[in-house]
């Protein structure tokens, strides 16, 4: 039995200079996908800035300075200050932490629910598939932002509920994607071989189908993170997301909107941060898709 199982799994060749080989391959990929590499660098840079915000931020994000209210961008405050004199650069840096975290957890929730459902749906087929997919169709019928708003209305605003709302709204996308992958993979000969060896269905799903279907999920997660960040920003902008005084990109924009005529910088800089982060994520996701599925290259 163990011998038969071994024939099903890929040979694990461990090269002594595996790390160097990896680096070389990464460098080759980066040269082939220059825009994707730059975008991926941008994502990493923004994440590093978020993680190091307490060290690199010039001020306290909540410290109010009534002598520096609505100051225009200057050397002292490169992104200016808001109506209570808080430094916008500091708040954007701290806001990055919350926005990125909310986005990552929301995508995690979507994957944690959507992928097993899609896997089960595609593998089991029949009535199970029908019920799960009709449920996903129904969830997809709700505009994601309106669904998120309704969920937040029921659960009350706050970071955790925004993560749940955004996560549930995007979950059907992952379920559908996983189902389509499972449907294709279950027809492969190695799955048939696994069945004939008497391997339980649960093990086939998680050991043989899931690992082979993970590439498009990774690509979707990269693109989905961009959507989740936009959704969080949108909900916080509307005032139903992460609540003050916590800084997120959307909540800083919310405070900047009424000040547009007097102090454009309050709304301008957090928007640029959202735009750059989502753009980098989308470009990195596109490059990843090209790498993982060369048939789509250049589309």
């Amino acid at each position: 039995m163990s011998d038969s199982s071994a024939t099903l799994s890929a040979p694990a060749a461990v090269a002594p200079n595996a790390a160097r080989g990896w680096a070389r391959q990464l460098w080759k990929l980066a040269r082939q996908h220059k825009i994707g590499a730059v975008a991926f660098g941008g994502v990493v840079l923004i994440c590093v800035l978020a993680a190091t915000a307490p060290i690199i931020a010039p001020y306290d994000p909540l410290a109010q300075d009534y002598e520096a209210m609505l100051n225009a961008p200057s050397w002292e405050h490169p992104f200016g200050t808001d109506r209570v004199g808080r430094d916008i650069l500091t708040r954007v840096l701290y806001g990055t932490q919350v926005s990125v975290m909310v986005g990552i957890v929301a995508v995690g929730i979507s994957i944690a629910i959507g992928v097993p459902l899609g896997l089960l749906s595609g593998f089991a087929g029949g009535a199970v598939d029908n019920v799960i997919m009709r449920l996903m169709d129904a969830l997809l019928a709700f505009p994601r932002l309106i669904l998120a708003l309704a969920i937040v209305a029921v659960l009350s605003p706050g970071a955790l509920n925004v993560m749940i709302a955004v996560g549930i709204g995007s979950m059907p996308v992952y379920a559908r994607l996983m189902r389509s992958q499972a449907l294709a993979i279950r027809e492969h000969q190695y799955i048939e071989a696994a069945h004939s060896l008497g391997i339980p269905n649960g093990r086939i799903m998680y050991r043989h189908i899931l690992p082979n279907a993970i590439s498009p999920i990774i690509v979707q997660a990269t693109l989905g993170l961009g959507y989740a960040v936009l959704a969080e920003a949108g909900l916080s902008f509307l005032g139903v997301g992460v609540q003050p005084p916590t800084a997120t990109w959307g909540s800083i924009l919310n405070q900047g909107a009424p000040l547009l005529e007097q102090a454009w910088w309050v709304a301008f800089f957090p928007g640029v941060a959202i735009f750059l982060f989502v753009l980098c994520l989308n470009l990195a996701g596109d490059a990843l898709r090209d790498i993982l599925d060369p048939r789509l290259r250049g589309r």
Partner: peptide, 17 residues
């Protein structure tokens, strides 16, 4: 790509400005 990545509410505010 910019159209997809741009937060619509921010673009709205900038257009108003």
């Amino acid at each position: 790509l910019a159209g997809i990545a741009m937060p619509s509410f921010w673009m709205g505010l900038m257009l108003i400005l």
